[in-house]
Design a binder for these strands. Structure first.
Lengths: 264, 264
DNA sequence: CACAGCTGGATTGTATGACAATCCGGAGGC
DNA sequence: GCCTCCGGATTGTCATACAATCCAGCTGTG
């Protein structure tokens, strides 16, 4: 009816579910392994679909359709919606239901600004406390990143960069930072997917990240911070450009999404 | 049975409910007024009880008891729990149920560190863009703060300081920042209540905030930032001291809260 | 007495069906 | 063309049911 099942790539809570790996920092901190609860699996599935853009911003998510597509009860669906709402991946209009969140250029700028400050916190802590082994791990992840970049495997890139950040947060020993970062992470990843549409963006990003790692390895906090700020500034601009392109092709059919236009 | 009703101060979702005002930044941004949904009211009630310390950290929250105390169905209670979980006010142990989140000194330090960075973002934007009228508003709120401080009215202080921050965020025109800050705000407010137990802390805080406002009024961003950092550093230390005192009087009877000890 | 294993009660996780409240698109009237 | 009203669609809430899981305490054994 509305293509939800396809958006979820055939995944339902109790089926194969080829997971690439968590795309949330805090999940790496949890010892208790994979999500067993149907609710958690359902959240993952919907989150992935939104981040990957298979559910377009502004699209309505009707509870009954979600139940059918995910093959879970309304009880679960409604709890899932609360989770996604907290992550700001959906906007819930009272008595109207949820729509996939829409990002304005202004919001994107704000997200990148905050993201930058938190990453700077991680980075400076990391440089201060990382052992040589920690830095080697970072180099290893960077190598994976390059490999995935060469294949232009966007999904893998998102997963690896999440691991990269988790490693920084873990060494920086900043759990609350990771929690807060996660709140932004879903939306950051949406934008990452988007900005990867720009030709050359993937290569640029990897070059920038390589530069950051080099400065970190040299224990040069100030230079690393500067490299990071250059990177996120550039990435942010690129994301906004792509967002505007998107906006042109998709002429905002959901006019009822007032919260996204006035609220900002 | 377990004193939940008293912890909620007799409030249920459909009764008097003397609200002091939102204790969340984003609620001020929303035009659509007060929470009408039972779910939202219920979240407010439980959140307030946790922040005010009427529900002690480590205390179990049993769904059935919450249903009775709040006079709502389990559907609503479970959605409320998802909200509070996202706010990190409760820790949910799978198949065990939620407990009121416990803060370790390390978490407190992390919270204050992040809080500081976000407030600095607000502050610098504010100084850059605020009109004279905006600054007058800030002075007005400061006056209210002093008045409430003189009365040692903790609840009012929390409400006013939330307005203070919202005003900064609004003028700084940073909605995403406000959203993220809110994720920390509940826990910050817990700590505020706690640190207000220290004699003289309220007066110190107001002195510090006055100083910040003065620097802002002088359009001196660097000095304002320094004043802010001094303030939050001091407040953080004070909160940790009070937290340790609390820990001594209340000998952690909830030994099952493993996530709070290992997870950090 | 210490301790491993078992059991039953308590609690969560999920499903189902029901119904009032609310919203919206469109029919009909002016 | 615009306003009003209606009915269908959807959300918000409730009540109930039951399987899965966990844990405290009992039991039996050495």
């Amino acid at each position: 009816m509305s293509g939800l099942k396809e958006a979820f790539a055939g995944r339902t809570v109790n089926s194969g579910n080829a997971e690439v790996g968590p795309t949330r920092l805090v999940e790496y901190f949890r010892p208790h392994g994979k999500a067993k609860l149907m609710r958690e699996q359902a959240v993952s599935i919907v989150r992935d679909a939104i981040i990957a853009g298979r559910l377009r911003p502004g699209m309505r998510l009707v509870e009954r359709e979600l139940c059918e597509a995910l093959e879970v009860s309304r009880t679960v669906v409604r709890e899932v919606l609360r989770d996604l709402e907290a992550e700001r991946l959906i906007d819930v209009l009272p008595h109207r239901g949820p729509i996939v969140a829409m990002l304005t250029p202004k919001q994107v700028r704000e997200i990148y600004a905050l993201r930058t400050e938190i990453e700077v916190l991680f980075l400076r802590s990391f440089v201060r406390t990382a052992s040589d082994a920690d830095i080697e791990v970072l180099r290893g992840i960077l190598a994976e990143l390059s490999a995935a970049g060469a294949r232009h495997d966007k999904t893998a890139l998102i997963g690896i960069i999440t691991r990269f950040l988790h490693h920084m947060a873990a060494v920086a020993d900043n759990q609350v930072g990771a929690e807060i970062y996660d709140q932004l992470l879903a939306r950051i990843n949406m934008l990452r997917i988007l900005s990867m549409n720009t030709p050359g963006q993937i290569e640029d990003s990897i070059t920038s990240i390589t530069r950051i790692v080099e400065e970190v390895a040299a224990r040069n906090a100030d230079a690393a911070e500067k490299a990071l700020r250059d990177y996120t500034t550039h990435a942010g601009e690129s994301a906004i450009i792509e967002l505007n392109k998107e906006g042109r092709t998709e002429p905002a059919k959901a006019k009822s999404a007032r919260s996204a236009s006035t609220g900002v």
